[in-house]
Design a protein around this nucleic acid. Structure first.
Lengths: 140, 140
DNA sequence: CCGCAGATTGACAATCGTTTTCAGATAGAA
DNA sequence: TTCTATCTGAAAACGATTGTCAATCTGCGG
């Protein structure tokens, strides 16, 4: 059937707005549960399920970045539109968005030279930022 | 009596050897469950729990690399000593080790320019390898 | 303004990968 | 062989995420 079905069946709900809103105001990577807690703390009545669902939608729409912090949780953060990566401080968690054109090109060419296509990649840089350098004596 | 207790209480068990052995022979990233399946298929009687436990130990000892493929599973692989990254086929799991000097330099310079030090990074490239390309008809 | 259809919500159950529990089996030393 | 700390593994526990489904909204047409 070639019906011109309205693809945008998106509705503006209170919950959806609340999530997008909170995400916009925060610079940290938050887990779905943290996000939910914050929302509830702010006075928004919302279910955990709904948070997960909307987070998925946002990631899917490319409006939010998801990373795996290696401890069992996926963390979400609003992101600028263009493709980029993160420089994260191991000590304080500060995150810096970095452009990575050289890496994009490198990844693409490496992949192609091996016959791969439909490429995606993960690039995260971890380190200790200067403010944290002086403060740390013991490690881990 | 103040006997010096042996700190290294490591024993060589059939299961432990089997895991290390299989890992040595395989170049792909395998999930704990895949590893378990392979072990059983090879005729080794071993429990899933044991696979997980030993895998953790190996990762902890730095003898095995663990990556998160973004779909809920952690995958493990033995790794060569020198620093390198991976090009992984999303469909069949084939892995290619790639050297990434340009990326190393890029990561180092980016980090430095932001005042970060003690840098480490993760770089993984995912794609579909050519053998898998033709086999896929259904799409998402 | 009213009502309808379909999108959305949310409490709860179900999944899924991974970890913990704990009693029985085993490796290594004496 | 005996002894004991380490290992093993089946099953339960766990925590994050997804699915279910009836009740509730949003947006549009009338």
């Amino acid at each position: 059937m070639t019906r011109t079905k309205p693809v945008t069946g998106q509705r503006t709900t209170r919950q959806r707005s609340a999530i997008a809103d909170l995400l916009t105001q925060t610079d940290d990577f938050l887990s779905a549960q943290q996000l939910h807690d914050l929302l509830v703390a702010r006075g928004d009545s919302i279910g955990l399920t709904t948070v997960y669902r909307n987070l998925q939608a946002l990631v899917d729409a490319g409006q939010v970045d998801a990373i795996w912090d290696g401890s069992g949780e996926t963390r979400y953060r609003h992101c600028s539109d263009d493709h980029h990566h993160h420089l994260v401080c191991r000590a304080c968690g500060t995150t810096v968005e970095v452009q990575a054109e050289p890496v994009e090109r490198w990844a693409a060419s490496i992949a192609e030279s091996h016959g791969f296509h439909d490429i995606s990649h993960t690039v995260e840089i971890f380190g200790i930022c200067s403010p944290c350098t002086g403060e740390r004596a013991d490690d881990d």
